[in-house]
Design a protein around this nucleic acid. Sequence first.
DNA 1: CGTTGTGAACTCATTCACAGCT
DNA 2: AGCTGTGAATGAGTTCACAACG
Lengths: 220, 220
Amino acid sequence: MGQIGPSELSGSLSRATAQRLSQYLRCLRPALTGTTVSSSQLARAVGVSDAQVRRDLATLGNLGQRGIGYDANALTAVIRRTLGIDRTWKSVIVGVGNLARALLRYRGFHEQGFEIVGLFDNDPHKIGTQVDGLTIDSLDQLASSIKTSKAELGVIAVPPESAQLVADELTRAGIKGLLNFAPALLKIAPHIRLVTVDLAIQFEQLAYLVRLSRTSENGE
Amino acid sequence: MGQIGPSELSGSLSRATAQRLSQYLRCLRPALTGTTVSSSQLARAVGVSDAQVRRDLATLGNLGQRGIGYDANALTAVIRRTLGIDRTWKSVIVGVGNLARALLRYRGFHEQGFEIVGLFDNDPHKIGTQVDGLTIDSLDQLASSIKTSKAELGVIAVPPESAQLVADELTRAGIKGLLNFAPALLKIAPHIRLVTVDLAIQFEQLAYLVRLSRTSENGE
DNA sequence: CGTTGTGAACTCATTCACAGCT
DNA sequence: AGCTGTGAATGAGTTCACAACG
């Protein structure tokens, strides 16, 4: 199974590990110069144990130097390659509301390798107008536009009642992965990857944590 | 409210369990009428095993009926109480950009118990204007405003370089929990609860999943 | 020295499988 | 029959602790 090939993107990392790699990447950026970084430094920054960091990074190959640490540049490169963001991912956003605009302005998306190549909406008032240099197209054009632009990722930023429809349309257009912001339970084909971000759930989790820490005076 | 009855809010649920409870809640809403729902139904809807559902729900007390299932209304009430959303959480948003506007329009926030009672920004052009019936205030007024409104949750929707400052200010103002959307590593006091939502990380996770499913044609 | 990499131990989470209730 | 609750088994994830190395 874990055959270390030419580019060692070995045995699939757990979801949690992949998330932490993203976080390590975040802290690595500031210290991008030719410095080295230790597992305990990364651990403190992200809020995990140093053993956890070492375990995570060890799965990427032996890129630490004992007694020294990890080379920040090399580590960054390997994590990016492992996560698959060592290249550009063309993406489209369906539903051009405030969330879509927030995503377009979100710092560093482009430099992280995510390029928005299409905006779609079904509101006649929006179709044809421009946002950040991109023209908003009608949903009818979704399939043809995706095929010509070769976009692989689709962002669903429409109200929940349209979310399934949009997901189906994106699937038909040959999209590979969906990032869904609608609080809806999507039924999608097994070959499509789905990441759902439900903002209300994040609020609920926060409320739970606050409530918990008040109920039992449990430190940390 | 009032009595906490069997007071089954003791044993802190794991973070993952709390998340799934939120998801169950999501599927429960449509079937709100006096119906019963089975663990396998919930499991199918959310995408977990039925045993998982029963294990999760069992931690809330014995509210299933063998041979029948769970009463949708009762289950909803207990989950809401467990998550701490059986009451209103007053919240403020700092940084009134597109993300803040998206949150304000997000369906069902209010009905889920989250009430935005304050908007803050340091842009002179925004201060004094209204969004959704709320007047945008200067950051200077943060502390006093939070104290009079008794807001408990703060949403950080500012650029990453201001995020730490805002977090400190909210802490000083006596906030209980922070929902951070800035891609920044926040240093916060231990008694403050923090949930960070990094949208770029979600993109990265999706890219990883898509890349993975292409590399090894691993069915699932 | 300080730091990595990793077997081994350990903790937490999930699934199995079935008794027990309706 | 159908469905829950749960002990037991399994699996996944994390920490311990230390040898190996610069």
